[in-house]
Amino acid sequence: MSTLHEFATITSKGQITLPKPIRQALGVDTGGKVAFDLHDDGHITVSRADAEHEDPAISAFLALLAQDIQHGRHVQGLPDDLAKAMLRHAEFADLSEDIAGDVVI
């Protein structure tokens, strides 16, 4: 049996407002993120999402990279044609110029 049982209405745009007790239980507020997980049995779990959304492709790449490093394999230099193409499309900052606007560190 659930500890908390609340209802939400779906709008014509497919949106819902999470009831206040649910938001409080999840520890989310305005601008907060929640994750929805659909399980094989049809149940959906709602949880507080991490501060940043993880792109599955980037996560998989980073895991692969970590595995390579752990096994002593290291990323080799880029092929010359790829490196040159990247440089052609890169925008470089002039480090001698003053920074405009606020800087948050």
Rank of each mutant, 00 (worst) to 15 (best):
T3W: 03
T3P: 00
L4D: 07
L4M: 12
L4P: 02
H5W: 04
H5Y: 03
E6S: 03
F7H: 14
F7L: 07
A8V: 05
T9A: 12
I10M: 10
I10H: 03
G14Q: 06
G14C: 05
Q15H: 10
T17D: 05
T17Q: 10
K20I: 08
G27C: 07
V28W: 00
V28H: 01
V28I: 12
T30Y: 08
F36R: 01
D37K: 11
L38C: 04
H39N: 10
D40Q: 11
D40W: 02
D41M: 04
G42N: 04
G42S: 03
G42L: 05
H43G: 04
H43N: 10
T45N: 06
T45Q: 08
V46M: 08
S47T: 13
S47G: 07
R48D: 01
R48E: 05
R48Y: 02
A49Q: 11
D50Y: 04
D50E: 15
D50Q: 14
A51Q: 12
A51E: 15
A51G: 13
E52R: 15
E52A: 15
E52N: 13
H53L: 14
H53W: 07
E54W: 02
D55V: 04
A57C: 03
I58N: 02
F61R: 15
L62T: 04
A63S: 12
L64C: 07
L65P: 00
Q67N: 11
Q67G: 02
D68H: 12
I69H: 11
I69W: 05
Q70G: 06
H71P: 01
H71L: 05
G72K: 10
G72E: 07
R73C: 02
Q76D: 11
Q76V: 07
P79H: 09
D80P: 05
D81Q: 11
L82H: 03
A83W: 09
K84P: 00
K84A: 13
M86I: 13
L87W: 06
R88M: 08
A90C: 11
E91V: 13
F92A: 14
F92N: 10
A93Y: 01
A93M: 11
A93G: 05
D94F: 05
L95A: 10
S96N: 12
S96E: 12
S96Y: 03
S96A: 14
E97K: 15
I99E: 11
D102L: 14
V103C: 08
V103D: 08
V103E: 12
V103Y: 10
